[in-house]
Amino acid sequence: MFKIELILPRVLKSFLDETGAIAIFTGRFFRELFRPRFEFNEMLRQCYFIGVKSLPLVLATAFIMGMVLTIQSRPTLVSFGAESRLPQMVAVSLIREIAPVITALICAGKIGSGIGAELGSMKVTEQIDAMEVSGTNPYKYLVVTRVVATTLMIPLLALMSDAVGVWASYLGANIKGDMSWSLYITRAFEYVFFADIYPAVFKTFLFGFAIGIVGCYKGMNSQKGTEGVGQSANSAVVVASLMVFIIDLLVVQITDVFGMIN
């Protein structure tokens, strides 16, 4: 009998194995999501840990990114005599790309590893088994709540980092220039269109979903022992970050196909 696994290189085999496993895991997530008994309280609790607890980190990053981007772009624009375009350039790049992706990466690091490690250690210390014995579906209680929470919270975090990033860029622009807040905002939004906002917000939902799914998958499939927990936290971050970039690329392609980039 022909066996496909014999001719595939080991790296490719493990990659396909992992991809398939994550796909099955995602399928199970959707099955569990629409079955009754929704763990609303646990989801709120996860929203608190994922959303509120990540807020300071995300906002600090957005602040720094907004300011650095402004300060860095200024000399280039000045050399073209286009200094007045600074708000537009920074706002477009922040809203379209930088704020969503940086937020997602920070969250992949913080939340992805957090979920990976938490579920991993729960798995290792049999807490997940204990939950199942206590009449609780761990997929619903642990996975669905966390994935829903990341899917809902990361867009909010990204929107907040949009705002803080633009504000920081206003401060950055005023280090060497003099521009009022209202003028800055008017300028900044001169070249931001609905076609920039919708894909940018849409992709943050996908980022959140990917971070949640990957973190949970890695945690639930953690190997025994403390080393296994560390490994699942680590690989959750790596895979989630990679997923963020892949999704970013796909969304750009799709929005391009639909002619939403102008």
Partner: peptide
């Protein structure tokens, strides 16, 4: 359970 499985949180 062998490892008690108390919920840490």
């Amino acid at each position: 359970f062998q490892s008690n499985a108390l919920y840490d949180s």
